[in-house]
Structures are given as C-alpha cells and as structure tokens.
C-alpha cells in the first residue's frame, strides 16, 4: 500500500491543529464551565447547609422561648386566677357584710315601722272602740246598769286586803282627807251613801267625798286619792280587747 508522505504530514498537522483548536474552543471552556458550576453548586449546597443549620438553631431557640413563654404565661395565669379568686372572696365577704348591714338596718327600720304602725293601729283601734263603746254604753245607759256598776265598785272596795286598805288610808290622810269619786254618770244620794258607808267601813272615817261627773271614765266609776285608785270601768276591758286585736293583726302580718 502506498503512503503519500506529504498527505501523512498534512494529516498529522491537521490532527494536531484540531487538538489545539478543540482544546481552545471545546475542552477548556466546557471543563471550565462544568467545574465552575460544580463549585457553585457545592457552594450553594454548603450555603444551604449553613442556612439550614442556622434555621434549625433559630427554630430550636424559638421553640425554647415559646416553651418558656408558655410556662410563664401559665404561671401568670395561675397567679392571676388565684389573686382573682382571693379578690372575689374578699369582695363577696364585703358585699355580704354590706348586705347584712343593709338587711339589719332594713329589718330594724321595718321593725320600727311595724312598731309605729301597730302603735298607731292600737291607738286608732282603741279610739274607735272607745268611741263606739262609749256611744253604745251611753245609748244603753240606764239606772240599772249604773247601779250594777256602783255595786261592782262597792264589791271591789270591800274586797280590798288590809295592806291595800292601809296604803289608801295613808294616802287619804296625806291628801287632806279628801277623796274624789269620778263617774260617767250622776250618782244618786242613796248610792253615794252606800259608797261612803262601804269606804268608811273598809278604810277609815273622817274624810269628805266629792263626786265629779267625768265622761272619760267610760261607763265606770273610780276613786282617786293621792296616787291610789280603786276603779271599775270598761276601759280595762277595752284595753284587753285592743291588746288581743293587735296580737291577731301581728300574727296575720307574719303569716303573710
């Protein structure tokens, strides 16, 4: 086989030229670009790793802080609720005290008002009953009733015990031997004689009796001497009646 040495030389030159040109335009540039990219990627990876590490650290830090905050807030909440509970109790105590005070005051006031009301009621009732009874008795008044009243009065004088008689005797003496007999009606001279006789027999002699007609002594008769009194009248019955009435009204009020 024939080999042309010129062509051989040409081909060797061509090949070496190609090696040079490709080294210049291909390998050098491509390898450089690849290496640069690799370096860049490596740098990015390392950067990313660093960032990741930092992020992990930061996350851990925040997590820790969060935990601390949560603990702190829980503690604060507990303290606050404890304080609030204490405060609530205090306030409740105070309110209860105030309410008690108001209640007491109110009750006192109520009792007072009730008292006043019953007082008033009693007074009115008494006055009304007095008025009614007086009117009735005045309408009914006659000699027989008056005699009965005087007879009762005389029985009372006679029924005095010795001690009471002695006290009255002393009073008569101290009062200038004057005795006043008040009655709602006129007493006849016979009746007056009966009364004086009974008094002298039971108490003492030597005093004068003065008779006064006094409508206030409701259907009754009374003997007054220096602070002592012997009497019979409807007054005491009426008073008992008023007492009983008041009691009944109070019971009704409580029941309501």
């Amino acid at each position: 086989m024939h080999i042309d040495w010129f062509v051989l030389g040409c081909q060797i030159f061509n090949f070496l030229l190609l090696v040079y040109l490709l080294k210049r335009f291909l390998y050098g540039r491509i390898l450089k670009a690849m290496d640069e990219r690799e370096a860049k990627i490596a740098a990015r990876f390392s950067e990313a790793r660093e960032i990741k590490e930092k992020a992990a650290e930061a996350a851990e830090l925040y997590d820790k802080r969060n935990r601390q905050l949560a603990e702190k807030s829980e503690q604060m909440l507990n303290e606050a609720s404890l304080a609030a509970e204490t405060r609530r109790k205090e306030l409740m105590e105070k309110v209860r005290e105030e309410v008690d005070a108001i209640k007491t005051r109110w009750q006192t006031m109520l009792a007072r008002e009730k008292e006043a009301f019953f007082q008033d009621l009693r007074g009115r009732a008494a006055r009304e009953i007095y008025a009614t009874a007086r009117k009735a008795l005045a309408d009914l008044g006659n000699a027989e009733l008056e005699e009965q009243i005087v007879a009762e009065f005389i029985r009372r004088v006679q029924g005095l015990d010795s001690e009471k008689s002695k006290e009255i005797r002393k009073a008569i003496t101290g009062g200038g031997n004057k005795v006043v007999v008040q009655s709602a009606f006129d007493i006849s001279p016979d009746t007056q004689a009966k009364i004086e006789q009974a008094l002298k027999k039971q108490i003492s002699n030597g005093f004068t009796v003065r008779y006064i007609k006094q409508p206030d002594v409701v259907s009754g008769i009374e003997l007054r001497v220096n602070g002592h009194k012997i009497a019979w009248s409807l007054n005491e019955y009426l008073e008992t009646l008023v007492e009983n009435l008041t009691e009944v009204i109070q019971k009704e009020a409580h029941a309501a």
């Binding site: 490709l22 291909l26 450089k32 670009a33 690849m34 990219r37």
Partner: peptide, 16 residues
C-alpha cells in the same frame, strides 16, 4: 467540530 464547538461555547453558562 471547530465551528460547532465555537458556536456552542461562545456563550457558555456556568449557571444551573
């Protein structure tokens, strides 16, 4: 080869 290489590598990128 040379022209192709030159065309491709004249503006190479080392980015992604």
């Amino acid at each position: 080869l040379v022209v192709g290489s030159w065309l491709v590598t004249r503006n190479l990128s080392s980015e992604i």
